[in-house]
Design a protein around this nucleic acid. Structure first.
Ligand SMILES: [Mn+2]
Ligand SMILES: [Mn+2]
Ligand SMILES: [Mn+2]
Ligand SMILES: [Mn+2]
Lengths: 222, 222
DNA sequence: GCGGTAATTTTGATTAGTCAAAATGTGGAA
DNA sequence: TTCCACATTTTGACTAATCAAAATTACCGC
């Protein structure tokens, strides 16, 4: 039985949801979070997760949450791999903007063959990250661990390079792009102010930008 | 309501099935043929066609058959357009063989956006035919009429150019390719023999090939 | 320990798509 | 005309995925 798009979406949501609060191997993702990540009613997620557990793709603890098994992990990583390879392909080969690729990839990830993904991957030179800096799992499902510092935690007045933007929202991505804060850009955090809940950044050509801490936490640096 | 993959497949099958026996605008496709084209039980096709008729996409005559309405025609043409643009893209850009593209396109045709199709179409130079010589409907759903002569009907001992191969079967396509009978090749029919049910062709470098009439009818020329 | 609140699970129903097998209609042969 | 074979439709049932709303459970503060 090859997994349906629905099953793939559940596995991916569990994969992304569990690593979001980047923690030890087996954190349990609460059902409520899973349901809202997928935009379905809570009861729907419960039912589906029980059948995934039957199939041995997840471990389900009633009232506690859900986690991927090794088999589920592998499948989920492949879906994420397809998603991210496709995003990069759309940007590099098809001339899409980085704010336009997510929805398209969301559909394509379920139907593209391994063959085609491998062609794209080859054509792109076996890339390690997608246009947002999200790591691309390799063909075995393994991801290079990224060390995570954000604009909220990195040292002040020190050159750092933006490596990743954790948010798919179109208008946020366009904002980031227009202020030269895309992955690859070199910047410096000048000041953090708790009172105003903001962070001031010096970027390209010494231009200043002030952004909220919520937004700042979405920008990872190295 | 955007049409499901299932609906798209039904519309496409009706579109292709009605034009197969290339006839006047409104030939009715028998339900049995539709069912077997889709690989579905006869009763399933009947049920589905009734709901398509409710939606105004087809005209359904019980015990007679089904035909597309103008709305259904348009939708079907767009599915066929996507399928064929994708096939050509896979061959020209992704390095696929012409015998490897059909299954991939069969899936992709339902999820690729208009945007992406247009990018492919542009990148390919607004092509009029796919790798098999099948005509690509334009963005409005219109196809250039092809005049149809096959190896069974074309004049003998006269140079003709192969323009289309009407069969998706992998091994047939590989046979055609290995004998230099792909669209674009120039050939000449030397002899037709009813008794042996075969046709002898002189092709590239004056090489001879003899093929059955069934196969010969699948090769269109100009 | 005892409530109360919020998260979670259960229940009952719905929709799309499908099949097998029974019932029915159609058109041609006699 | 009548009848039969075959195509088609109808019937009853099933699976995957979903929701709303009712029932249950967990946990936290007192
Ligand atoms: Mn994305
Ligand atoms: Mn991404
Ligand atoms: Mn095809
Ligand atoms: Mn084709």
């Amino acid at each position: 039985m090859l997994p349906s798009s629905t099953v793939e979406n559940y596995l991916k949501a569990i994969y992304l949801g569990s690593s979001a609060a980047q923690t030890q191997p087996q954190r349990l993702l609460p059902m409520g979070q899973l349901a809202s990540a997928l935009g379905v009613a809570p009861g729907t997620a419960t039912t589906m997760v029980k059948t995934l557990a039957e199939s041995g793709l997840v471990k389900y603890e009633p009232y506690a949450g859900v986690a991927l098994t090794a088999a589920g992990q592998k499948l989920a990583a492949m879906v994420v791999r397809r998603h991210r390879v496709i995003e990069l392909f759309l940007v590099r080969v098809m001339g899409y903007g980085w704010d336009e690729v997510h929805d398209e990839a969301e559909q394509l990830e379920h139907v593209v063959s391994n063959r085609l993904i491998d062609r794209m991957d080859e054509m792109l030179g076996r890339p390690e990250v997608d246009p947002h800096g999200d790591p691309i799992p390799d063909a075995r499902g393994v991801v290079k661990p990224q060390q995570a510092q954000s604009l909220l935690t990195c040292p002040l007045n020190t050159r750092v390079t933006i490596t990743r933007v954790i948010d798919q929202d179109k208008s946020f991505l366009r904002f980031i792009e227009s202020h030269h804060l895309k992955p690859g850009e070199s910047i410096e955090v000048e000041e953090r102010d708790a009172a105003s809940d903001s962070v001031r950044v010096r970027g390209k050509d010494d231009q200043r930008v002030t952004i909220g801490t919520r937004a700042a936490s979405k920008l990872l640096v190295q």
